[in-house]
Amino acid sequence: MYRKQDKKTKIFKHIFIWLVIAFALFPLVWTLSAALNPANTLINQKLIPQNASLTNFKYLFNNTQHPFPIWLWNSVKISFITSFIAVSMTALAAYPFSRFKFRGRRNGLFVILLIQIFPQMLAMVAIYLLFLNIQEVLPAFGLNTHPAIITIYLGGAIGVNTWLMKGYLDTIPTSLEEAAYIDGASKFQAFYRIILPLARPILAVLFVLQFIATYSEYILASIILNSNQKYTLAVGLHLFISDMYSNRWGVFSAAALLGALPIVILFMLVQKYIVHGLIGGAVKG
């Protein structure tokens, strides 16, 4: 690198990178092509479809057996509510660790971190049985309900995120709150009116990370939800594709592209923070 590179090395580098790019784009290009191909089959698919059309997308929105729009909406709804509540709870939990002196402060955050190292899905059997029992007493929170799956996701709300949040709050000077106290604000008001607005960037990043993770979750959703109208996109698409793969390839491709779109946009928005957060040890689901 600190010697003058000869031309051959340079060309080799570009060729290698292009090969990897081909590998990276290959599935995406085929999916796009299939989505636009009205033939709707895997057989004899050409890379550039003849008479490209949006037939597959239209079919997607008029299919009662596999209600894609409902799945997409369920996923967005569940992810949004989960992320909103989770980020609120994270902000609340991180604040005292950053500001207050209290007993158990040193070990508290550490215990939270330690517990959340174990993925929640390991306890899937117990979670299933728990909601089976809840169903008998409180059907609105039982199996096959959205409140149930949101509640389950909230179990993992505080954890690494609390740690990241606390780190950010530590960088906000305490003099701001002290000024607020002098003006007669209560502790909660100082938190709510002074600190939260300042922490907006980290709140947004954590929200997006939580949203992506919730949107992509499959295993717990598949255990809890069991009817066509309640499925999330992950559960629904899996079913859709297992039913009749080759016959609906075009429709599936359209669904895959539309389903991926919100996440790709969100990811690009916070990309720089995610890259930063990666170093902190957060892994995207």
Binding site: M89, L92, I112, T151, G155
Partner: peptide, 16 residues
């Protein structure tokens, strides 16, 4: 401040 998140963690992670 810590209770809401902890409540869900205990109910849906620790207890399971």
């Amino acid at each position: 401040y810590i209770l809401p998140g902890t409540f869900f963690m205990i109910l849906l992670v620790v207890y399971p």
